[in-house]
Write a protein that binds this DNA or RNA. Structure first.
Length: 769
DNA sequence: AGCACGCCGACT
DNA sequence: GTCGGCGTGCTC
């Protein structure tokens, strides 16, 4: 019953391993029937039979060892050049094996183009085959379109090795119109005009276009069609338009950047960094090499595109912007330009990482310290991790880490830190009345008016009034959206919490609602406390809504805008210079700074430090540096309200240290604690609907690790997650602290079996533990 | 991811 | 007696 081998005297071909865009590992297929024996075409797309259909997959390697008993053959190789950069394939393989992430998941997260192929698919029975046993409607010995036959039937014939298949790319077309010499009924005068216009043009692309050229209404051309004097035809579609490179060319200084395999450039403003980077990129482009620039978010991407896309490209090539913002047609076009070597420079999001530049000479990772590089779902990959692996892959692509602040992990590489932009910093010390220091930030609403002012200090209020008087602009950053962090009963202190998640519900005054920021649960505010029946609530922990309300009260007549995850006011007046205040969360920094910005206020800096994560200080430092470099040329007064005025992330900024100073302190401090970059930190989550089952499985995971020889310091936990219940499951967590990848792999290997609860491993945890 | 198989509660 | 819940397993 097995397929006839293509040739009896050749050794059986080594199977190929392919990745499908599904959360599964690599799947093996034999090379397509009749293909000359060759090494697996890594990075090429190949059509494979999958659940009775043909599916696009990407070749990721050659199967080791003996071919599995009953493998099927791949059907067709789609590409003549790689669709995915081979260094990416290598990096993804390495990560997939170590992190126990299905490679298909990495591909479906990071390859955003080419999963559906437009092909003309023709089939016929192989010369000697008798398909009568398969039923009536089967392919004959002449080519016929595959869509004329039932897909499962074709697959059954294919499996028997009795099907010949051929594929041809289908060019994209648009519907157009051509005039016919005779019609069904006579035309009116206007219809006659439309017909003459079409006839003179030969063919036209759309009815609207046709009508416009003929100077008639679209209904007239519709009549010409209806009366049979014209017919629709398929015309080849013009290539889609892509974002135009900017006209600006920045930086013509000599290239003084390091020549290392991995190097870095930090500090200063983004325009200065781009200017330093430009000569290096320009040189590589002149040499015909490809350059890939990756940005973590839309704002950074726009900025980089603005500054770098105008660099001179060798003739016949152009800069390409590639991100999720492109539609599928644009994506495919951009990708073909890149693969064909017609795009020397690609600037894009994480989706551009696997771009198949034929001769990639440099990868620039912008803002490598950004948390946005951590994918929050699917593979939960951390882009810098993958990029580092690409740089270290066989082809050794140089890597540049460029950003506002270096990640602590970046300090081991050679590089340069630009002098910090001038900062005017004013710190409001909420801890100064000693009896209030111990209350902590959440208790701070108890500060009575007349003390320091809360949530806007008297100092901040004063400069806000000046901003209004002088017709300038101010931006205030609140640590959260909504009105307040929580609502509390005045008499019994009860705080309404989420029924699914064990967190306090956030209060949204505008919607009169309590909202869980973890799972999205929402209820209207109860009239009275469900514990004691008291009708008085008090809000604690100001969010954007609260701050907006305070500013409105403080500055009557001043426009106040809000920008956060829930609510985006139209900021066009602000952006054109109107005197106003904008209140937002951190996302505000991903917009252009208002042009007339004179004041930035951080209403409660400590929230960034209270996160129980060893990276909190680093993140806070980055936020501060971003704030003072936000405006491209000015140095607005920056007011920071905090309970910790002596935090080094803050004081180093005040004393004029550069952006590398604080991360270096962090690296030293983490030595003793065994945190990255000194050790690899791995997060293991064990979760189940049933709490006891989760707890015992978590303990079982720990026991397994210890049984595999884990030293006491290498395994921490298990401990219940800080959120005791999330979306109805009870998560328990463990941390691994290993000295290197080999050791990590050894320990994780012991967990490669089933447990009674879901076990999830994250080798690049962010914002947890 | 889908989709099937399979084993226990409330219903036409 | 079935419809349907989602736990587990498989896809080459």
């Amino acid at each position: 019953m097995s397929a006839a081998p293509p040739s009896r005297h050749l050794p059986p071909a080594r199977p190929w391993q392919v990745a499908l865009p599904l959360p599964i590992g690599a799947i093996e297929f034999l090379p397509p029937h009749g293909l000359p024996s060759q090494a697996a075409p890594v990075g090429f797309r190949v059509l494979v039979p999958w659940r009775g259909e043909l599916t696009v997959s990407v070749v990721v390697g050659e199967a080791p060892g003996k071919p599995n008993a009953r493998l099927r053959e791949a059907v067709h190789v789609l590409d003549e050049i790689p669709w995915v950069h081979p260094a990416f394939v290598e990096a993804a393989w390495g990560l997939s094996k170590l992190a126990r992430t299905p490679i298909g998941l990495l591909f479906s997260d990071l390859l955003g183009v080419g999963w559906e192929a437009r092909l003309d698919h023709q089939v016929r029975a192989v010369a000697e085959a008798d398909l009568s046993a398969f039923g009536l409607k089967v392919p004959g010995h002449e080519w016929s379109g595959a869509d004329h036959h039932a897909t499962p039937l074709l697959d059954a014939i294919r499996e028997q090795g009795l099907l010949d298949e051929r594929f041809a790319p289908v060019p994209r077309t648009v519907t157009g119109y051509r005039a016919l010499d005779t019609g069904l009924t006579a035309l009116t005068r206007r219809q006659q005009d439309a017909w003459t216009t079409l006839r003179a043009a030969g063919s036209l692309g759309s009815q609207v276009d046709w009508a416009a050229r003929a100077g008639v209404s679209p209904s007239v051309v519709a009549q010409v069609l209806a009366r049979g004097w014209a017919t629709s035809i398929q015309l080849p579609a013009a290539p889609p338009t892509l974002p135009e490179p900017s006209a600006r060319v920045c930086g013509s200084a000599p290239d003084t950047l390091p020549e290392a395999e991995v190097w870095r450039l930090h500090g200063g403003r983004s325009a200065e960094r781009h200017a330093r980077l430009a000569p290096r990129i320009a040189r590589l482009l002149r040499l015909g090499r490809g350059v890939l620039v990756i940005a973590p978010d839309g704002a950074t991407l726009r900025n980089a595109w603005e500054d770098l896309s105008g660099l001179a490209q060798p003739s016949g090539t152009r800069a390409v912007c590639f991100s999720g913002g492109l539609n599928p047609v644009q994506r495919a076009h951009a990708w073909e330009l890149i693969a064909g070597g017609q795009a020397g420079l690609t600037i894009g999001s994480a989706l551009a990482l696997c771009a198949p530049h034929p001769d990639l000479g440099l990868i620039v990772l912008l803002e490598e310290a950004s948390d946005a590089y951590k994918l929050l779902s699917g593979s939960r990959a951390f882009l810098p991790e993958l990029v580092t692996r690409m740089a270290a892959a066989g082809s050794c692509i140089p890597l540049a880490l460029v950003g506002c602040v270096p990640a602590a992990e970046s300090l081991l590489y050679r590089g340069e830190v630009l002098p910090p932009p001038k900062a005017r910093l004013h710190v409001v010390d909420y801890s100064s009345p000693p009896e209030q220091a111990e209350l902590g930030p959440l208790s701070s609403p108890h500060l009575r008016p007349g003390d320091l002012g809360y949530p806007l200090s008297h100092d901040l209020a004063r400069v806000l009034r000046q901003v209004q008087e002088r017709g300038r602009q101010a931006a205030l950053l609140a640590p959260r959206r909504g009105y307040s962090a929580l609502l509390r009963c005045k008499s019994c202190q009860h705080t309404p919490g989420c029924p699914n998640c064990d967190v306090a519900l956030r209060f949204h005054q505008e919607r009169r609602a309590l909202h869980c920021h973890q799972c999205g649960y929402e209820v209207t505010i109860p009239d009275r406390c469900d514990r004691c029946g008291d009708p008085m609530w008090q809000a604690r922990g100001p969010g954007t809504e609260w701050i907006v309300q305070e500013v409105r009260r403080l500055l009557p007549g001043m426009p106040v805008y809000r920008h956060d995850g829930d609510h985006q006011d139209d900021l066009s007046a602000l952006q054109s210079g109107e005197s106003a205040v904008v209140v937002g969360t951190q996302g505000l920094l991903s917009l252009d700074a208002p042009p007339n910005l004179a004041l930035i206020g951080l209403t409660l800096a400590d929230t960034w430090l209270n996160i129980s994560d060893f990276r909190a200080g680093e993140r806070y430092h980055r936020l501060l540096r971003q704030l003072v470099a936000w405006h491209p040329s000015r140095a607005p007064l920056t007011v920071v309200q905090t309970f910790q005025p002596t935090h080094p992330a803050l004081t180093c900024l005040k004393s004029g240290q550069d952006a590398g100073f604080y991360p270096a302190i962090e690296v030293r401090a983490r030595q003793e604690l065994g945190y990255p970059p000194h050790r690899l930190l791995t997060y293991i989550e064990v979760a189940a609907r049933d709490r006891a089952r989760a707890a015992s499985s978590a303990q079982q995971v720990a026991d397994t690790l210890h049984g595999a020889g884990a030293a006491p310091g290498e395994v921490l936990g298990p401990a219940p997650s800080p959120l005791a219940r999330v979306r109805g499951v009870y998560p328990y967590q463990l941390l691994l602290r290993t000295r290197n990848e080999e050791r990590l792999n050894e320990l994780l290997g012991s967990l490669d079996r089933r447990f009674a609860a879901r076990v999830r491993v994250d080798i690049s945890p962010r914002g947890m533990g």
